[in-house]
Structure formats: structure tokens, C-alpha cells
Simulated assay, not measured.
Amino acid sequence: MRDNNEMPGHLARRFQQIAVAVFLAEVGEAGFDLTPVQYAALASIKANPGIDQATLAGLIAYDRTTITGVVDRLVQKNLLERRASSRDRRARELEITDEGKRTLRAITPAVEEAQRMMLRGLTPKEAAELMRLMRKAIAAGNELSRAPLRDAQA
């Protein structure tokens, strides 16, 4: 039987636990109540104004059925608005509010510090290599995910 530290799934899960804990600590210390997924959604909507929830789910590789709750919480926090789509009456377009834009600007230093802390045991060269290898492994396994990453044009 292999040691857990030799299993990529175990290491990925542990890194995810650390990443979420560090993100929540840094963002919370800066005075914000935002999860990593809420941040990713907000940043993606700012970069792609008017996208619908299904497209958002693909952009942040999040399950389409669960993205509704993420969007609901961002709407409740007045960071996001849902509007009826001009192209498809069944769809809802997502727009970041002025409060959402202010929040993104203000939270950025805490998010950047969290990213640095996640890699703090590595030299800059090692961190770059880890990021390269993670992107490579994720790209190769993307279609195996229940929530594959999709670009905005997909």
C-alpha cells in the first residue's frame, strides 16, 4: 500500500485545504466575507459582463447546478445583479455592481498575499515549475472533471 504522500489525489486535496484556509484567513483579516469561489465568480463576471450562469460555471470550472447558490449569495451581498437576457428570456445575465467593483479592488491585495502564502515554501523557480506542472496536469484531466473548465466562447 502506498503512503498518502505518494498519491497525487491526497496531495491535491491537502493543497486545496491549505489554499482555502489561507484565502479565507487573508480575506477575512482584510475585513471581507468572500469565499474563493465567490471571488472567482465576481472576477470572471467583471471580466465578462453580461454572461449567463451556465457560461460562468464553465469559466470557473464549477458545477452548473451549484453555481446558482454562489450567484444568489453574491446578489444578496449586493455585489452582483441578475438581469433578464435580451437574447434569451429564460437566461439571466450577470452584471457586477459598483459595490462589487469596489470590493474586487479592495480585496485584491489580500488575494495576492494569499496566493504568495500558498507557495511560501518554494523558491520563485520552484513555484513557477509547480504552477506549470499543475496547469499541465489539469489541462490533461480537464474533461474528466464533473465541471470542466470552458472558455467564454465555448
Rank of each mutant, 00 (worst) to 15 (best):
A91H: 02
L80F: 09
L80E: 04
S86D: 07
S85R: 03
Y62I: 12
V71S: 05
E93D: 13
D72A: 10
A43L: 15
E81D: 11
E93H: 12
R92D: 08
A91R: 00
P49E: 04
L59N: 01
T68N: 13
L79K: 01
K46Q: 10
R92L: 14
E81W: 07
R73Q: 10
I60M: 08
A40P: 05
T55G: 14
I45A: 12
Q76E: 06
V70D: 03
D98S: 12
L42R: 08
P49V: 08
D88W: 10
G58S: 14
S85F: 07
D63K: 13
K46L: 15
R73H: 09
R92T: 04
D63C: 14
D88T: 10
Q76V: 12
R90S: 14
R64Q: 07
L56V: 08
L79R: 01
A54M: 10
A41I: 09
I67P: 04
A40H: 04
I67R: 05
G50V: 11
T66P: 10
L56H: 05
A54G: 11
D88H: 09
V71A: 11
R89H: 06
D98M: 13
R87I: 07
A91D: 03
R82Y: 01
D98K: 12
L74E: 00
V70C: 09
I96G: 02
L56N: 05
T55S: 13
R83D: 02
T66D: 03
D88E: 08
D88L: 15
T97F: 03
R90C: 05
R73F: 12
T68E: 05
G58V: 07
L42D: 06
G50L: 14
L74I: 07
A40T: 05
D52F: 11
R64W: 05
K46I: 13
L74C: 02
A84C: 08
D72W: 07
A43M: 11
E93F: 14
A91V: 07
R89M: 11
I60C: 13
V70I: 13
A40F: 14
I51R: 04
A61I: 11
I60P: 03
R90Q: 06
A47I: 03
I67M: 12
S44F: 01
R90E: 07
R89V: 11
R64S: 08
A40V: 11
D52C: 12
D52S: 05
L79F: 04
L42T: 06
R87A: 13
Q76N: 04
